[in-house]
Design a protein around this nucleic acid. Structure first.
Lengths: 188, 188
DNA sequence: AACGAAATGTAGCGAATGCTACAATAAAAA
DNA sequence: TTTTTATTGTAGCATTCGCTACATTTCGTT
């Protein structure tokens, strides 16, 4: 029995759709491939979501939620000792293979936001808000300005991630070395 | 006579195609709309570029070149007095209405790079390299580390632009205020 | 069991996609 | 002028797109 018929609804569909989108991107997210990935038909996707725009909106919202949950899981209890360590942690997290699909999708979401596509900006804002919340929770306990510092690190980190994405990882690395966060205790 | 027949070639086509793409994005860049914007037919686009992939590659290369030229035009002769002023200049430039279409397109190029689409990463690298070159030329003359500083500012600036793009302009602003570049001489 | 509503399959529509076959014209070379 | 060669127009093909009409099945309720 290959049959798997545990009903079907937005809730059961979204994880499967998200998997497909994380692997193949938003650009190639047309109804038939999506349906195939979810074990259904385009017909049923329209049935459940109304139209594609709503599907995309719901899907992005779901993905943002999954991303938030994943961040919470990865959120260690202990704070970092320094801002530098804080940044190192979050950059290391972004380099993990398991979050790579998120990273690739992330820039599509940013692009969609910039272009004004419906649903994109909300998802981007939600994901960024969570990221910021995470960073604030990681800031050193003795930091003089945790809120501002977290925003500073977020800016720096997103810039670094982008540079790395487009093949300027070296530029990013050298940029961080020239920041006030550099571990410039050479020869230690 | 509405006829405009100054021959037709890649060179004469690319500017028109670029205009269309800057306005409507890469996503909606299909042959017929592109051709219409350039006053031709899809038939001729294929004739001149071979196929769409090559057209996109050539177009991105051309756009990167135009962007570089525009940067050179905007490149003032005098250097900034401080890193802070340097960053302020470049951020102001990115906020100009005339470069807005570039900004929107930029994130699509980044997304394409992340996704590995042919031609995107080259264009992104070229544009970033130029941006970096520009920044280096703007660095204060007495800066202890112009190369590193420029990379640091580039990282910070790209992060800021992204945050602003997705509606976190406030986060970006507060992040910069918490950086070592902040003009923290309040009440001056 | 009978009924009404929710869920699903099958088939297809009109539009858009990248691209091609074929023929006609325009320009250049002989 | 004749003969290539480069350029362009006209039609169309096969595929994919989002979506719909219609019929059928499944299911909870009575």
């Amino acid at each position: 029995m290959t049959a798997t018929k545990p009903k079907m609804s937005k809730e059961t569909l979204l994880p499967l759709l998200a998997n497909h989108v994380l692997e193949h991107g938003m650009g190639g997210a047309s109804l038939r491939p999506l349906a195939k990935a979810a074990g259904t038909s385009d017909r049923m996707l329209i049935y459940h979501f109304g139209n594609k725009e709503q599907l995309v909106t719901d899907l992005l919202e779901y993905i943002a939620d999954v991303y938030s949950k994943a961040l919470e899981m990865a959120m260690g209890d202990e704070r970092a000792k320094t801002r530098q360590e804080c940044l190192a942690r979050v950059l290391a997290y972004g380099r993990e293979p398991s979050v790579q699909p998120f990273m690739v999708l992330w820039w599509e979401i940013v692009a969609g936001s910039a272009r004004g596509l419906p649903g994109y900006k909300q998802a981007a804002q939600a994901m960024l808000a969570k990221q910021l919340e995470w960073l604030e929770g990681q800031m050193p306990a003795d930091d003089p300005d945790p809120a501002g510092g977290a925003r500073y690190l977020l800016t720096l980190m997103e810039g670094s991630l982008m540079l790395s994405t487009v093949g300027h990882a070296r530029t990013a690395r050298e940029g961080l070395l020239a920041s006030d966060l550099a571990g410039n205790t050479r020869g230690g």
